Simulated assay, not measured.
Amino acid sequence: MSTANGLRAVAATRYVTPLREGGSLPGLVEADDLGMYVLKFRGAGQGVKALVAEVIVGELARALGFRVPEIVLADLDPELGRAEPDEEVQELLRASGGRNLGFDYLPGSFDFNPLVRDPGPDLAARVLWLDALVLNVDRSWRNPNLLLWHRDVWLIDHGAALYFHHRFGPGWRPAPDYRYDAGDHVMLPVAGPVTEADRELRPLLTGDLLRRTLALVPDEWLAQDGAFATPDDARAAYTAFFDARLATSSRWVDALEATRAARV
C-alpha cells in the first residue's frame, strides 16, 4: 500500500526479536504484507528526529545512486508488547504506538569492512562525500553502518545525521560552517579523490529532488518541533541547510581532501 507522500505503509503484526547492535534498540518485526522489517521506534531515546534524519538521508542517498534498504512507514499497535518478556522492550513498544519507521530486512547480510574487502576508491569517496554533506557522524571504523548483501555495499543507520536539527529554535538559520571530522570515517583509508565525487554528485542534488525527499517525511513528525508553525516551515529549514551546505561545498570538500592526503 502506498501513502500519499510516496513511502509504503505497513502495519506491524508480530514483534520477532530485538536487535541489540544499535543504541536505540531497533527490533525485527513481521508486517501485514508478510515482509520482515528492521523497525526504528519513535519512542526510543533519540525521538522522532532520528526518524526524520533516516528518511531524508536514506532517500537522498538512494536518489544519488547508493544502495539503501527500502524505507517504509510502519504502524505499531503497542499491544504487541504484551507478550514480550523483556521489560525494556515492553516499555519501548508502549511508548511507540502509531507511526514508526521500518527498513527492509536483508537476510544473510553482514557488516562490511572496507579494509577486508575493497569497495573501490570511487564508491568510498562518494560515501565520504555524502556523509560530510549530511553531517553523519556515525560511520566510523568502530561502527561502519555498512552491510554487504549479494556482494553489494548497502548504507544503513542515518539517524545521527543532520545533527543541527536538535538545535532548531525561533529564528534558526544555517551556520556559516559546520564541524565535521572525517578522521575516523571508515572509508577514508580507501577513498579516491573527493573532488571527483563532488563533481559527480553535487549537480544531482537539485531543488526538485530535495523537495520530493522532504515531502516523504510525515507531517506529524515535523509538527512535533515547536520551533516551527507548520511542517512546511520545518521543511524550509532543512532546505536552507542543504542550500547553504551545497553553496559552501568547496570548503568542506577541500577539508576532506586535506584529511585524505594526510592519511595517505
Results as ranks from 00 to 15, higher is better:
residue 154 W to L: 03
residue 74 A to K: 00
residue 145 N to G: 05
residue 21 E to I: 00
residue 179 R to M: 07
residue 264 V to G: 11
residue 18 P to G: 02
residue 193 P to F: 11
residue 233 D to V: 02
residue 69 P to I: 10
residue 239 T to K: 08
residue 177 D to M: 10
residue 133 L to A: 01
residue 170 P to S: 13
residue 212 R to T: 12
residue 1 M to Q: 14
residue 62 R to E: 14
residue 48 V to C: 05
residue 133 L to R: 06
residue 75 D to G: 14
residue 2 S to I: 11
residue 263 R to P: 04
residue 263 R to L: 13
residue 121 P to I: 12
residue 126 R to S: 12
residue 24 S to P: 07
residue 243 D to G: 10
residue 65 G to I: 08
residue 50 A to D: 04
residue 152 D to Y: 05
residue 218 P to G: 07
residue 156 I to N: 00
residue 202 R to Y: 04
residue 7 L to E: 05
residue 15 Y to V: 09
residue 138 D to T: 01
residue 264 V to M: 11
residue 218 P to W: 09
residue 105 Y to R: 01
residue 234 A to M: 08
residue 136 N to K: 08
residue 158 H to G: 01
residue 75 D to K: 09
residue 194 V to S: 04
residue 103 F to C: 02
residue 63 A to C: 11
residue 152 D to P: 01
residue 195 T to H: 14
residue 46 Q to F: 06
residue 243 D to Q: 12
residue 229 A to I: 05
residue 80 L to G: 08
residue 170 P to Y: 08
residue 156 I to T: 00
residue 231 P to V: 09
residue 166 H to V: 04
residue 95 A to S: 15
residue 187 M to T: 11
residue 230 T to M: 00
residue 46 Q to W: 03
residue 23 G to N: 14
residue 230 T to G: 05
residue 36 M to I: 09
residue 142 R to W: 04
residue 95 A to N: 10
residue 93 L to N: 04
residue 146 L to V: 09
residue 102 G to C: 08
residue 119 P to N: 07
residue 192 G to N: 10
residue 26 P to I: 00
residue 222 L to C: 07
residue 175 A to L: 15
residue 6 G to R: 02
residue 262 A to D: 13
residue 102 G to L: 06
residue 72 V to C: 08
residue 41 F to R: 06
residue 88 E to N: 00
residue 92 L to V: 00
residue 121 P to E: 07
residue 204 L to V: 01
residue 1 M to T: 12
residue 160 A to L: 15
residue 212 R to M: 11
residue 242 F to C: 10
residue 189 P to Q: 04
residue 60 L to E: 02
residue 230 T to Y: 00
residue 236 A to G: 14
residue 108 G to T: 11
residue 163 Y to L: 08
residue 255 A to V: 08
residue 53 A to C: 06
residue 104 D to Y: 11
residue 68 V to R: 09
residue 84 E to L: 08
residue 84 E to R: 07
residue 110 F to C: 01
residue 5 N to R: 15
residue 174 P to A: 02
residue 228 F to Y: 15
residue 232 D to I: 05
residue 221 W to I: 08
residue 64 L to Y: 03
residue 161 A to G: 11
residue 197 A to L: 07
residue 242 F to S: 08
residue 97 G to D: 11
residue 24 S to L: 00
residue 234 A to R: 12
residue 209 L to F: 01
residue 11 A to Q: 14
residue 67 R to M: 05
residue 83 A to T: 14
residue 60 L to I: 15
residue 91 E to Y: 03
residue 201 L to V: 09
residue 69 P to E: 11
residue 186 V to I: 15
residue 93 L to G: 05
residue 255 A to Y: 05
residue 144 P to W: 09
residue 122 D to M: 13
residue 258 A to I: 07
residue 81 G to N: 03
residue 213 T to W: 11
residue 142 R to F: 10
residue 188 L to D: 02
residue 219 D to T: 07
residue 47 G to Y: 00
residue 65 G to S: 06
residue 206 T to E: 06
residue 87 E to C: 03
residue 233 D to K: 01
residue 203 P to S: 08
residue 264 V to A: 13
residue 66 F to L: 03
residue 144 P to F: 11
residue 83 A to Q: 13
residue 113 N to H: 14
residue 9 A to R: 15
